[in-house]
Amino acid sequence: MANTKLLIAFFLHLMLVFSVLDLANAQGLKLDFYKTSCPSAEHIVKEITKKFISRAATLAAPLLRMHFHDCFVRGCEGSVLLNSTKKNQAEKDAFPNLSLRGFQVIDAVKTALEKKCPGIVSCADILALVARDAVSVINGPSWSVPTGRRDGRISIATDALNNLPSPAFNITQLKQSFASKGLSVKDLAVLSGGHTIGISHCPSFVNRLYNFTGKGDTDPTMDQNYIAHLKSKCKPTDTTTFVDLSPRSTHTFKPNYYTLVGKRRGLFQSDAALLTDSTTKAYIQLQAASKGSTFMKDFGESMVKMGQIGVLTGKSGEIRKQCNRIN
Rank of each mutant, 00 (worst) to 15 (best):
E42Q: 11
F10C: 13
N3H: 12
H229S: 14
A24W: 11
L183R: 02
E318H: 13
K281H: 09
H251C: 13
V185A: 12
N88R: 15
K35W: 00
S142R: 12
E77M: 15
A9Y: 05
A108R: 08
T237N: 14
F178R: 06
Q285G: 09
N97R: 06
C123D: 14
L209V: 06
K297S: 12
I120D: 03
I126K: 01
C123R: 02
Q224E: 15
K231Y: 03
L100F: 04
A289C: 07
S19F: 10
A124T: 07
T240A: 12
K92M: 11
V130L: 01
S249E: 13
A189S: 03
Q27A: 14
L164F: 00
K233Q: 13
A41W: 04
T196N: 10
K5E: 12
E114S: 04
G182W: 00
T58K: 12
P96A: 00
M222L: 15
L127K: 05
T313Q: 00
R248S: 15
H69Q: 14
K5P: 08
L260K: 15
S249M: 11
K116S: 15
V45R: 02
L260E: 14
S166F: 00
A160L: 01
R101P: 04
A124F: 06
F178S: 08
D32A: 05
D133H: 02
A9I: 06
F11M: 08
S270D: 07
R248T: 15
C71S: 10
F10E: 13
L267T: 08
N3T: 12
R55K: 15
K235C: 05
K254D: 13
K297T: 15
I199F: 14
A56F: 08
F95V: 13
N211A: 09
P167V: 01
Q285T: 15
P146L: 05
S79H: 08
P236L: 09
A157M: 07
N225S: 11
T213V: 04
L12F: 09
G266E: 06
L312W: 03
K254C: 12
L188Y: 04
I106E: 02
R320Q: 00
I8Y: 07
Y210A: 09
S54Y: 03
L59C: 00
R65T: 15
S200N: 08
N139A: 15
L260P: 11
D219W: 01
R265D: 07
V304D: 07
L183G: 01
K233M: 11
